[in-house]
Nucleic acid binder design. Structure first.
Lengths: 198, 198
DNA sequence: TATATATCGATATAGTTATACCGATATCAA
DNA sequence: TTGATATCGGTATAACTATATCGATATATA
């Protein structure tokens, strides 16, 4: 277990806070208010903020600008992150052109595929030797995903965002985040069916 | 709280089991074996399976075909689910053409947009009156997401899969699953940076 | 300046989720 | 047929996460 271990749920809440705070720049906000907006417990929010912020003032709350900066520092949004993406099908294309990553200073530097329209996959090696890549995004068909993954690992990439519906085999020090769209949607439908049946 | 409440984490494991079991059809498998393959605790897997299966045999484990059927029954994969998607940008397109939903008997029946290439958004009303739609998928820009959401809700849709980076305002009986790609990637990078720093 | 109060932040409690343990049982091997 | 054993499934325990409680404090108000 890591020293500064925080739970996944905690990490998922932080961007929510940041997005909401955007609306209250040049102002103060209390943990109670923020909690009510996001439908979270006030103590939960206060404890989350205590972990990453300089602290708030009694009766007033947190200085929003300062808090946003603390969040950005904590999450690393003030530092540029570099990604490459492999597999330029429809999904790869969508991600490659998605503008939402800019907000977090994440940049997809290059797109690879076997098609001529993109940098060829066998150029990954050269490209990675000149750049320090933080994340490899895998959007190839599932039968090629492990090969692509191995290629990325051989270039020293330690984090994989995997959209192929298979579990990748990686060493212990590599982090894989699987984004299985079909699984996610099916779980949503399961929830919905359970609620309807009460 | 619902009667048959199960945790989100539990629901996320079920498709993993199903995908893995695919490889062991016409065979038996023990919870221990399955757990080791997926890097989960054996007791956890056994308890999960106990919730949804007819049961396994001591010394042998579970009949894979039967177990798969139990999982499909439980998750509703044996019943057809219907979805529509609104917003035919790159991401909408990718989802609309994604073949992975078939495995779970989920069908995206129609795609809407303001562009002429697709059914116009103002036809959603007519379309929904003739079909019982389980899920609405929102892939429009964030400034239009709430409007589209309201439109879907007015047609009786009770589950929303939202890719727009905002929190939608919905009544209590509607389930929203947010799929914020930028947030997800930023969290992956945070994890990676924490690990590297040890 | 003195008092009331909203909020913070720390500690204690509750609730939820995962793990450990153990008797029962069906199968395999002798 | 008999004994050894792997696995199941239930109960007990531990770990983790969220909530409740409360004294301290900075601000606003009188």
């Amino acid at each position: 277990m890591l020293q500064n271990y925080v739970s996944e749920a905690f990490l998922e809440r932080i961007p929510l806070y940041l997005n909401e705070l955007e609306k209250y720049k040049n102002d103060y906000i209390s943990s109670t208010t923020l909690a009510n907006i996001l439908n979270l417990g006030e103590v939960l929010v206060r404890k989350d903020l205590a972990k990453i912020s300089q602290g708030g003032k009694p009766k007033i709350g947190y200085h929003v600008m300062d808090l946003m900066n603390d969040i950005k520092d904590y999450m690393g949004y003030n530092n540029k992150s570099k990604a490459i993406i492999v597999g330029m099908g429809r999904l790869g294309n969508a991600l490659y052109h998605y503008s939402g990553f800019n907000k977090y200073n994440i940049h997809i530097l290059e797109a690879f595929d076997i098609l001529d329209d993109y940098k060829n996959i066998n150029e990954i090696k050269d490209f990675c030797s000149e750049q320090d890549i933080d994340v490899g995004i895998i959007t190839v068909p599932k039968d090629q995903a492990q090969n692509v993954c191995n290629l990325l690992l051989s270039q020293g990439i330690k984090a994989i965002w995997n959209f192929a519906p298979i579990r990748l085999n990686v060493p212990e020090d590599v982090i894989v985040q699987n984004e299985n769209l079909a699984d996610s949607l099916s779980i949503l439908i399961k929830h919905k069916n359970d609620v309807v049946r009460k």
